[in-house]
Design a protein around this nucleic acid. Structure first.
Lengths: 154, 154
DNA sequence: GACGTAGGTTCGTGATTCGAACCGACTCCG
DNA sequence: CGGAGTCGGTTCGAATCACGAACCTACGTC
């Protein structure tokens, strides 16, 4: 059984350059939750004004958020997720599930994410739609970065 | 259509406290790829010695990595993923897929992760095994943090 | 005994991040 | 009219963090 390769560091590196600091993910999550205004975000996250302003500008710059004027006189702006931002949700889901399973302080909740329609737990598997099977982390290869380096099995 | 809630910030907050800096994820990824020794990691990541030592110690502390002696005289150690560490893979996958789709510089590779057995692309959906359906980010509720705050639809 | 390797620690500097304070444009209240 | 409040920031000086360079230990090798 070969190890997962996780080649193509660039993708992860780039992603981390944008969202790999302590606040950005939490900001995106807050916007998901319906907080769109500067002061709402600041209160909810207890983040300092300069850092929030910087992160929001960066997220708008790279296309994760959209800055939208919601009134004139005085001009006021709110932040909305773009398609690029909405597609961050698998990362949020993965972080949340992992944190919930492994880091719950004592007898924390075991199942956080549930299906809105039926109320049953959600899973986030790797799926090959061609084989119609779920795939373990050890069934991954990467393309086009060549053959896997055959990391010796742990 | 209600927004996803992503309640229970604690889970994400805790996860980010451990793995939310610029290096930790990259270190975990490198260990996944088969790099287990201090100097191999340092060379691969071009990370400074103090930071690598600090991150490895922290990861061992919190149970993501295991420090294992692989020889005596002189004592030498290597780092292996624990179960907790292996289960970080959904986060790596999500980061990688997002970065690859949205951040590839020009005509970068569109499909990085493929099924080792069949060579077809892998997907990482949200699945409700009870309904046997995939769920969009907007079909998520969270438990037990109460009813969703009905984030106004974007 | 000089050199190489493996796995770190110590140290001083320079970049981040922080809270506190300030600012500008406007509204509301009296 | 004057003062307070709201919203969305920017500026500033102090504290924290991450960095490379150098050093250290313990061993093997030439």
């Amino acid at each position: 059984m070969a190890a997962p390769t996780f080649e193509h560091a660039g993708s992860i590196q780039w992603a981390l350059d944008l969202i790999g600091d302590r606040w950005t993910i939490l900001i995106v999550r807050a916007v998901f939750r319906g907080l769109h205004r500067f002061d709402d975000l600041r209160r909810d996250l207890t983040i300092s004004r300069p850092v929030l302003a910087d992160r929001l500008a960066r997220l708008v710059d790279c296309g994760v958020l959209e800055r939208r004027r919601y009134q004139q006189r005085p001009e006021r702006f709110e932040y909305r997720l773009t398609a690029m931002g909405i597609e961050l949700s698998p990362i949020l889901v993965a972080l949340m599930r992992w944190g919930d399973i492994w880091l719950s302080d004592d007898n924390g909740p075991e199942t956080v994410l549930i299906h809105g329609e039926c109320g049953h737990p959600l899973d986030q598997p790797l799926v090959c739609w061609t084989c119609n099977t779920t795939v373990s982390p050890f069934g991954i290869r990467s393309r086009p970065t060549g053959p896997d380096p055959t990391g010796d099995p742990s």
